[in-house]
Simulated scan of single mutants.
Amino acid sequence: MPIADIQLPNQPPPPAPGDSPRGKGRGAGLNMAGRFERESQDAFDDGWGTLDTLPDLKTEVQEERARSIITRNASPDISFDRSVNPYRGCEHGCVYCFARPSHAYVGLSPGLDFETRLTVKPNAPELLERELGKPGYQPRSIAIGTNTDPYQPIERQHQVMRGILEVLSRCNHPVGIVTKSALILRDLDLLAPMAERGLVKVALSVTTLDRKLARTLEPRAATPGRRLDALRGLSDAGIPTAVMVAPVIPALTDAEMERILEAGQEAGASAAGYILLRLPIEVSPLFRDWLLRHRPDSYRHVMNLIRSMRGGKDYDAQWNKRMRGEGPYAEQLAKRFSLASKRLGLNRRRQPLRTDLFSPPRSGGVQLALF
């Protein structure tokens, strides 16, 4: 669909630019009710300035004794069939995060609740060991960080991800990690030996190299420079790394694709990937609100380009389309990525992680064999 043919609805006057109305370091400016709630509340400015006096939202963390930890999927457009999520919600506060709607399933808002009301699964390592030890378990690479970041700030205190890595290392089980955090360097003592055995790959997601833009898009994630430093540290330790240009935001970050790939390659990345901005369900109003607060002059241009790649909608969830989009602009992005990757020598060889070394655990409540 031609970009010029797409008509956007009338929008309210743009809010004043700046941080989220509920405090610095927050990405979302809304906290609307989830789609499964019977009632919802809307903030309303009555002219007395009460909206300006609301207290900053503080991060709340609660523990959940999970019953299982390995999540299975059969999606044909992703490279893994199982994943682990140590946390629910993510303090990084990336306003575009496609995982935000998952908070609606537990009666919380995909908006500010997603980044301020977090759940930690302290028994995740124990559960993982139990599930890996089940009779008939067949090892395949486990993906971590595909939903919420396993190295978000609360990992410093709770160290659930480190416990998971300790289990995987003992069992010689392969794992692929995606993160935006330099905290991953803390676990080099586990990751480097696993890499020597062909058991781990790590991808760092870099949305933009512009620190100012990154601060508003993903306020509590590591700065772009720190992520590149993490890539360098991992690569120097012999860990296979990739740089992810994700998400690509049309008319906002797409012009940086080649520079991000170059910076990642210079930091030691041997592989790369990209994902087009995804705006499922509640993420769309959150992102549009962010645009009105931070880039009001670009609002119509950004949304027109997004809709030109999503069949005239904010989002198209069809497999094999949701990650890349379609249409001339999407094809141009794909071509640019392909040419830059080839020029930089990225993605030349993809070495699969090893599964032949897997050794099932014999502890953690797993029933021992009789003979």
Rank of each mutant, 00 (worst) to 15 (best):
residue 307 R to Y: 05
residue 75 S to E: 12
residue 89 G to A: 03
residue 11 Q to Y: 09
residue 327 G to R: 08
residue 21 P to V: 08
residue 295 R to H: 15
residue 62 Q to A: 12
residue 40 S to Q: 15
residue 335 K to I: 02
residue 179 T to I: 03
residue 326 E to G: 09
residue 321 K to Q: 11
residue 301 H to P: 00
residue 175 V to H: 01
residue 79 S to Y: 05
residue 307 R to M: 06
residue 117 R to A: 03
residue 244 M to S: 14
residue 343 R to Q: 13
residue 179 T to K: 08
residue 115 E to L: 00
residue 229 D to T: 11
residue 55 P to E: 08
residue 283 V to H: 02
residue 124 A to Y: 02
residue 199 L to I: 04
residue 35 R to S: 13
residue 83 S to L: 14
residue 62 Q to W: 09
residue 21 P to W: 06
residue 75 S to T: 11
residue 56 D to G: 04
residue 263 A to M: 04
residue 325 G to W: 02
residue 24 K to G: 14
residue 344 L to R: 04
residue 278 R to W: 02
residue 71 T to R: 12
residue 350 R to V: 12
residue 120 V to C: 06
residue 98 F to R: 10
residue 250 P to I: 00
residue 26 R to P: 07
residue 12 P to S: 08
residue 176 G to H: 14
residue 232 R to P: 02
residue 167 V to T: 09
residue 298 S to V: 00
residue 322 R to Y: 00
residue 236 D to E: 15
residue 258 E to P: 00
residue 112 L to V: 08
residue 281 I to G: 01
residue 109 S to F: 02
residue 318 Q to I: 01
residue 305 L to M: 12
residue 236 D to Q: 15
residue 119 T to S: 10
residue 208 T to N: 05
residue 35 R to I: 12
residue 182 A to K: 10
residue 233 G to V: 10
residue 112 L to W: 05
residue 328 P to C: 03
residue 107 G to M: 07
residue 288 R to G: 01
residue 253 T to S: 08
residue 269 A to Y: 01
residue 114 F to L: 01
residue 143 A to L: 14
residue 242 A to W: 00
residue 304 N to A: 14
residue 58 K to G: 07
residue 70 I to S: 00
residue 355 T to N: 08
residue 98 F to M: 13
residue 41 Q to D: 09
residue 120 V to E: 08
residue 133 G to A: 09
residue 238 G to W: 05
residue 319 W to C: 11
residue 340 A to S: 14
residue 337 F to R: 10
residue 271 A to C: 03
residue 64 E to I: 11
residue 41 Q to K: 14
residue 49 G to S: 08
residue 48 W to N: 15
residue 199 L to H: 02
residue 96 Y to V: 11
residue 335 K to R: 15
residue 48 W to R: 15
residue 217 L to M: 08
residue 339 L to H: 11
residue 286 L to W: 04
residue 148 T to F: 12
residue 181 S to P: 07
residue 315 Y to W: 15
residue 84 V to T: 05
residue 115 E to Y: 01
residue 94 C to M: 10
residue 152 Q to H: 06
residue 176 G to K: 13
residue 74 A to G: 06
residue 110 P to R: 04
residue 323 M to K: 13
residue 157 Q to K: 15
residue 215 R to S: 14
residue 136 G to Y: 09
residue 330 A to T: 07
residue 249 I to W: 08
residue 172 N to S: 10
residue 229 D to I: 04
residue 56 D to H: 14
residue 47 G to P: 09
residue 235 S to V: 05
residue 92 H to Q: 10
residue 139 P to T: 02
residue 173 H to N: 03
residue 124 A to K: 07
residue 366 V to L: 07
residue 268 G to W: 02
residue 267 A to N: 04
residue 155 E to T: 10
residue 205 S to E: 00
residue 259 R to P: 00
residue 298 S to P: 00
residue 211 R to C: 00
residue 308 S to I: 06
residue 206 V to Q: 02
residue 74 A to N: 13
residue 188 L to G: 01
residue 139 P to Y: 09
residue 296 P to E: 02
